[in-house]
Amino acid sequence: MVKVILIVDDSPIARKMLKNSIIKYKEFDIIEAVNGQDGVDKYTANKPDLTFMDLTMPVMNGYEALQKIKEIDKDSLVIVLTADIQPKSLASVMALGAFTVIKKPAKPESIQTIIEKAELKLKAMRG
């Protein structure tokens, strides 16, 4: 089951929007990180079940953070959120091992759908 969720985004508003969408669905332990590096550190410390990752961030961008997280744990579920969703960027993110990509602004309903999918996936993986 999904218990801990990590949100990595430099924009406080984007984090708040996402958090509200998630809480609307169910209560989770939500951890926030403000850039890619912070995200990798908090991932290591908290081992979240699910990570939401922005792409454009200072210090370390989302691509790099995604790569690092996959190196730490190849089974980690990372959902990439981006406003610039097109075949080119989609392909590179998926190649890095993202679970899926969601277009910003993400509707609360699509966040819920994606969490449900992740729960199914976790169930299958952990048995």
Partner: peptide
Amino acid sequence: ILQEIMNIAFGNATA
């Protein structure tokens, strides 16, 4: 909020 709306809008526009 304005900054985030701009980020999203210009990202969507790029796509």
